[in-house]
Every structure is written in C-alpha cells, then in structure tokens.
Amino acid sequence: MSEDERNLERIIAQLNTYEQQAQILQRRIDLINASLQEITLSSESLDELKNVGEDNEVLMPLGSGVYVRAKIIDKEKVIFSLGSDIAAEKDITGTQLSLDQRSMALQGALQSTGQQLQQIINTMNELNRTAQTIARKIRG
C-alpha cells in the first residue's frame, strides 16, 4: 500500500469520526431547540393564566396530547421545577424570570454548540478536498 493510500484511509477514518461528532452536536442542538420551545410555551401559558379567574375550568396537559379538565384554585402561585426532582412554589412573575434565565442559558449553549458544529463541518470540508486530491493522484 502506498503512502497516498494510507493517507486516504487515515482521512476517511477521521471523516467518520467527525461525522459521528457532528451527529451528536446536531442532536444536542435539536434538544436545546425543543427546550427553548417548551420554555416559550410555558411562558405563554403563564401569561394566559394571569387572565383566568379562580374556579374557572381549564384543560391541563398531562403529556403526549392528553389533557384533563381542572379548576384553578390558586393562580398566584405555581410549582416550578428547580431540577434534580426539586420544585418550589413561586409567583408567576418570578417563574417567568426564572424561565427567561433558563432561556438565555440555553441560547448561549445553542450558540456554542452551533459554533462547534460549524468548526467540524469546516474541518470535514477541508478533509474532503484533501481526500479528493489524493484519490485523483492515486487514480493517475
């Protein structure tokens, strides 16, 4: 096997590794975007809750498109997940501020992950050009 063939094999192995890393980063981006959408929906729901009278009936989502009819007993306080199975009672404004903070942190993570993905794509493009050059050289 010639030096060029060994280099081509090495580049192909690197491309496969970068492809796997790119897929992982893309999945991370998708998860971050889903979390951002959930935060937006939660914040919008909190805005609507401000306009609902107590003892009014609402549809409460249970997940997977399943809802139950429920009555609002106390619209001034909501239960807010702090993470790690810990939750606290907060007022709507405080909850929305916490959601905004989470959103900003996620947007930062999204930007950082997007930059990492772009760097990998640039490197892959470079390696592809090099591989094509070597392949042409091998073919003669």
Rank of each mutant, 00 (worst) to 15 (best):
L82R: 08
R28S: 06
V58Q: 09
L127V: 09
Q20P: 00
I29R: 01
A131G: 08
N125P: 01
I11A: 12
Q96L: 02
N16S: 11
S45Q: 12
A22I: 07
D55E: 14
K71P: 09
S84W: 09
I92A: 01
R10N: 07
A22K: 05
I138F: 06
Y67G: 02
R102H: 07
I92P: 01
L117I: 03
G140N: 08
Q107T: 04
P61T: 05
M104Y: 11
E76L: 09
Y18R: 10
T40D: 15
D100M: 06
Q21S: 10
Q107P: 03
N125D: 03
N51M: 09
Q26P: 02
E19H: 07
I138P: 04
I73C: 09
A135S: 15
T123V: 12
T133V: 12
T95C: 13
K137A: 14
V58E: 11
I72N: 13
A70Y: 05
A70C: 06
K90H: 06
M104A: 12
I12G: 00
K71Q: 13
N33Q: 06
L36D: 00
M1N: 00
D4C: 02
L82G: 04
A131T: 10
S42Y: 10
I72P: 09
Q14R: 15
S103H: 12
L99V: 06
M1T: 01
M1L: 00
I11C: 11
Y18S: 01
A87G: 01
E9L: 11
Q101E: 14
A105H: 11
Q23D: 12
V66C: 04
K90G: 00
A131R: 11
Q96F: 06
R10Y: 06
D4W: 03
Y67H: 03
G65M: 03
I39M: 05
Q23N: 14
L31S: 03
E44I: 14
E57H: 08
G53W: 07
Q96E: 11
S64R: 07
Q23K: 12
P61D: 04
S35G: 02
M1K: 00
L117F: 03
Q111E: 11
